[in-house]
């Protein structure tokens, strides 16, 4: 039995749309697999060491909070990128991953500088892109289907050759009109899909868990009964295709 440390970045400011459900899911699944989990809530103004965590998560926030968090993370951005390079699993939702690019838009259309970790920029569209969405992603070399609910004003344009999309849109809304959804760099995934994302995609939850296991040299010997989760996935998928 191992203990996994999860860093929950800025829960007071970045956690809309039930995003923290993703951590409830990761935690429960690790516990069902016989391990223990310690979730640390990291708030603005607190000292912390990002290197301590086995998994990092940040949810969605308003543009006001997005700007506050960007300022807070600025001194940490090299550490954050080094951890991504190293393969630390991370999941950032919507405005959380959007602040990692060159620029994004806060209220009334003002463009502000992002952390610049990746070479993409975010503009605001004329209307919100919302609705149930089905994408196809590659996890562990296999094509898998992922479902979630898109809800954002952002239009994300990537010019970064090293940055992959999280998936290809089969039905629903992506980053903009290019049929791509989210961003991906090694084990870092940024996605606009809520639900929370992991609820109907146990395969994605297990992807993060498998990475955590590998990094701790733990073998996975228990298979969880995902009948309910897979029903929910199938139900959402069937309605879209």
């Amino acid at each position: 039995m191992a203990t996994f440390k999860i860093g929950f970045l800025y829960p007071e400011h970045m956690d809309l749309y039930g995003d923290d459900g993703n951590l409830i899911i990761i935690k429960k699944r690790l516990e069902w697999l016989g391990h223990s989990v310690l979730i640390t809530k990291i708030n603005l103004g607190q000292n912390y060491d990002l290197k301590e965590y086995d998994f990092l998560f940040m949810g969605t926030g308003t543009s006001y909070n997005q700007a506050r968090v960007t300022k807070e993370l600025e001194p940490q951005k090299d550490t954050l990128f080094a951890l991504m390079e190293e393969g630390v699993p991370m999941l950032f939702m919507a405005t959380a991953f959007q602040l990692l690019g060159q620029s994004y838009v806060i209220d009334r259309g003002k463009s502000v500088t992002g952390l610049g970790i990746f070479n993409f920029y975010v503009e605001n569209g004329l209307h919100r892109l919302t609705g149930n969405t089905l994408i196809s992603a590659i996890l562990n070399g296999q094509e898998v289907s992922i479902v979630g609910f898109a809800n954002h004003m952002a239009r994300i344009y990537s010019e970064d050759e090293n940055l992959l999309p999280f998936g290809l849109v089969v039905k629903g809304q992506g980053n903009n009109n290019d049929k791509l959804e989210g961003i991906r760099y090694k084990n870092f995934i940024g996605s606009n899909l809520h639900g929370p994302l992991l609820a109907k995609n146990p395969i994605l939850a297990d992807y993060f868990i498998d990475v955590m296991f590998k990094r701790k040299n733990i073998n996975r010997d228990v298979i969880l009964d995902d009948a309910i989760e897979l029903f929910a996935h199938q139900q959402a998928r069937t309605r879209l295709i």
Partner: peptide, 23 residues
Amino acid sequence: GTCSGDIAVRLKYSGFPAGNIVL
């Protein structure tokens, strides 16, 4: 309901026994 799966998953992760969740 149209999202019966969503509420079933939510209940399961709340700690309610999965065996007593009926779809």
